[in-house]
C-alpha cells in the first residue's frame, strides 16, 4: 500500500486520520463507557447521580414487570421482521424483474416516502386510524360498524407503525441481493428438471439469503429502540424497552436505571449481530 516515501507519510496521515479518531473516541467510545459506569451508580433523593458501585439497577431490572416489557419488545420486533420479509421479498423480486427504466422509477418510489419526516408519517397513520379518522368514517359510511372502532393503542397498531417505518430497510438489501442473482444458475436448475417451487427453495432463496439476513438485522434492532412509534400508536399500552429508557432519562429522571436498561439493549444488539455474522452475514451489508 505505502508506495510513497515512508518518512514523509507521518504528517499527512495524522491530518487525515486524527479527526475521525477523535470523533470516535469522544462521541462514541467515551459516551458508551460512561453509560456502562452510570449503570452501576445510584441516584439520591434529589435525582442526582451518586457514583457508588452496586448491581441494584440490574437486580431491579430482573423483576417480572420489566420482563413483560422485554418480551413485548422482542415479540413486536420479531413480528415486524417477519412481516417485512414476507411482504418485502416478493416486492423486491417484482421490482428487480421490471425493465431497467421502470425498475429505477419503482426503486425511487420506495425511497421518496423517506423524505417526509418519519414522525409526520406516523402521525398520518394515527389520524388515519383514529376514532374520527378516514378509515373509521369509511367503515361507518359503508355500514360495517355504527360506532367508530378503536384501532389505535394496541400491539397491532405498534406493529403496523414499525413495519411501515422499517419496511424500506428490508426492501433495499433484498433488492441488492436479488439483483445480483446469477440467472444462469436458475436456468441450470430448470434445465435439470426442477420445478418453480424447488428452484425457489433450493437455488433462489439460498443465493439471496444474505439480503434477508441483512434486512432482518436492519429491521429487528431499530424496532427495539423506536420509542416514538410505540408512544404515538401504542399510547403507553404497548411499552417497549425504548419507552422505558426514554422515561428514565426524561420524566422519571433515573439515569442510572436508564443506563442499565441501555446496557441490556446493547447486549441484545450484540447477540443479534453475532448471530448475523455467524450465519455468514457481512457487516458491510449493514452500512
Amino acid at each position: 500500500m505505502m508506495t510513497l516515501n515512508d518518512k514523509k507519510q507521518k504528517m499527512p496521515m495524522l491530518t487525515m486520520l486524527s479527526p475521525i479518531t477523535s470523533m470516535l473516541i469522544f462521541l462514541v467510545v467515551i459516551p458508551l463507557i460512561y453509560v456502562l459506569v452510570l449503570s452501576f451508580c445510584k441516584t439520591n433523593e434529589y435525582y442526582q447521580v451518586m457514583f457508588t458501585f452496586s448491581f441494584d439497577n440490574y437486580k431491579n431490572l430482573l423483576s417480572p414487570s420489566y420482563f413483560q416489557v422485554y418480551m413485548n419488545s422482542i415479540v413486536i420486533a420479531a413480528i415486524t421482521t417477519v412481516i417485512c420479509i414476507v411482504l418485502g421479498y416478493p416486492f423486491a423480486y417484482y421490482i428487480v424483474k421490471q425493465p431497467p427504466k421502470i425498475r429505477t422509477i419503482l426503486y425511487m418510489l420506495v425511497i421518496i416516502p423517506f423524505w417526509t419526516n418519519s414522525l409526520i408519517r406516523i402521525y398520518g397513520w394515527k389520524s388515519f386510524l383514529g376514532a374520527s379518522g378516514l378509515l373509521n368514517n369509511l367503515f361507518v359510511w359503508l355500514g360495517i360498524t355504527h360506532k367508530p372502532l378503536e384501532l389505535l393503542f394496541n400491539r397491532g397498531a405498534v406493529v403496523l407503525g414499525m413495519t411501515y417505518t422499517l419496511f424500506p430497510f428490508m426492501v433495499l438489501p433484498l433488492y441488492t441481493a436479488i439483483e445480483k442473482l446469477d440467472l444462469t444458475l436458475i436456468e441450470a436448475s430448470y434445465d435439470l428438471g426442477a420445478r418453480k417451487v424447488n428452484t425457489f427453495l433450493h437455488v433462489i432463496l439460498p443465493l439471496t439469503s444474505s439480503g434477508i439476513f441483512a434486512g432482518a438485522i436492519m429491521v429487528f434492532i431499530p424496532t427495539l429502540g423506536f420509542f416514538f412509534v410505540s408512544d404515538i400508536l401504542g399510547g403507553g399500552k404497548s411499552d417497549m424497552i425504548g419507552n422505558l429508557i426514554e422515561r428514565q432519562f426524561g420524566s422519571a429522571n433515573n439515569w442510572p436505571l436508564g443506563s442499565a436498561l441501555s446496557i441490556i439493549l446493547i447486549l441484545l444488539t450484540l447477540i443479534m449481530v453475532r448471530l448475523y455474522t455467524k450465519a455468514g452475514g457481512k457487516l458491510e451489508d449493514l452500512g
Binding site: I221, F227, G242, S262
Partner: peptide
C-alpha cells in the same frame, strides 16, 4: 450504524 439510535442519544 448498528446500535439503536436511542443508545447513542442517551449516551
Amino acid at each position: 450504524v448498528v446500535i439503536p439510535e436511542i443508545i447513542l442519544g442517551i449516551s
